[in-house]
Design a protein around this nucleic acid. Structure first.
Length: 289
DNA sequence: ACACACCCCTGGAAGC
DNA sequence: TGCTTCCAGGGGTGTG
């Protein structure tokens, strides 16, 4: 399940592999992935023909392939992957889109779950429309400061886990890194966001930024079959402390790590290091600022 | 503002 | 062994 660090790793890999290449033709083998233009894979294919890839950017978990005239926005969702092949390589049963280039190479998009999406825009238009427009700030941008984060939290009564997963609140975190960031900040996933002390908000901010940055530096996490565009594994899974480790002992206190559903998502945490929020007592809520 | 159910889809696990 | 059923998971949408 690619999250920000994995998508950033794919971006960097594809940047090396396909920038400067010119599209010779596109094959759409499973057209429901093409969300814009909707129900019109023919226009999708025709519009992209002869375009040259100028840059590959990222916004949250979205990749953006830029040409002179167009922006192609790609989301990998659970299992989307890119691989550069030659023109003679045959697609396997899970390859749904093929970008053929004039130099005889071909970029295969493979996605077992068929959850991935493609949105095609005129260049520049993509930032003014869904799915990119409603995204929250980029956690690794210099503009995402502690003060900004504290302002964002103001008035939020949602539990931390669903809040941090909400891409409209903050772009790029997914299930793995939310669990890791909450663990590192010693915060329970069901803690209402507006009950954090200033110190806890700071700890959460720092753990989000540090966890994501370290994961980017490690080339992402290879859990559940994630590979970058060159078929290489990331290494951050070696630093994962709670995700997928239910029943194992907490690296801090050796209590067994627990798994429960929070906001409909499998959530991993240490019950001792991340204590359960106290139930609403009915008494005055302590000030959080 | 927030919570939750449902849908998309398939492979792997669990149950029988 | 082989069949059926259940379930995860990002994000959009719809309902309460």
């Amino acid at each position: 399940m690619p999250e920000l660090p994995e998508v950033e790793t794919v971006r960097r890999t594809l940047e090396q592999l396909i920038v400067g290449k010119t599209v010779d033709g596109i094959e759409v083998l499973y057209s429901p992935l093409i969300k814009r233009p909707l129900d019109d894979p023919e226009t999708f294919r025709e519009t992209l023909r002869s375009e040259t890839i100028q840059a590959i950017k990222r916004r949250g978990k979205f990749l953006i392939f830029e040409t002179d005239r167009l922006s192609l926005v790609s989301h990998l969702r659970m299992e989307g992957r890119y691989a550069l092949k030659t023109k003679d390589d045959l697609p396997d049963k899970h390859t749904h889109v093929i970008f053929r280039f004039t130099d005889g190479t071909a970029l295969h998009y493979r996605d077992v779950r068929k959850f991935g999406t493609f949105h095609l825009f005129s260049r520049g238009e993509e930032m003014q429309s869904a799915p990119l427009l409603p995204l929250g700030p980029e956690p690794l941008d210099p503009g995402f400061t502690l003060d900004a984060f504290i302002r964002m939290l103001r008035g939020k009564t949602t539990k931390l886990k669903p809040l941090l997963l909400d891409q409209h609140f903050l772009a790029g975190l997914g299930n793995i890194y939310v669990d890791e960031a909450l663990f590192r900040a010693c915060l329970h996933p069901e803690r209402p966001a507006n009950t954090l002390t200033r110190k806890q908000k700071t700890a959460l901010y720092e753990s989000i930024v540090e966890t994501l940055q370290k994961a980017v530096d490690s080339g992402g996490s290879s859990v559940r079959s994630y590979l970058n565009g060159k078929g290489e594994m990331g290494m951050f899974q070696l630093q994962i402390q709670v995700y997928g480790r239910q029943g194992e002992s907490c690296p801090n206190c050796h209590s067994p790590i627990r798994k429960k559903k929070v906001g409909g998502r499998g959530t991993h945490y240490c019950p001792k290091c991340q204590p359960q929020p106290r139930r609403r007592s009915g008494s005055a809520v302590r000030k959080s600022m």
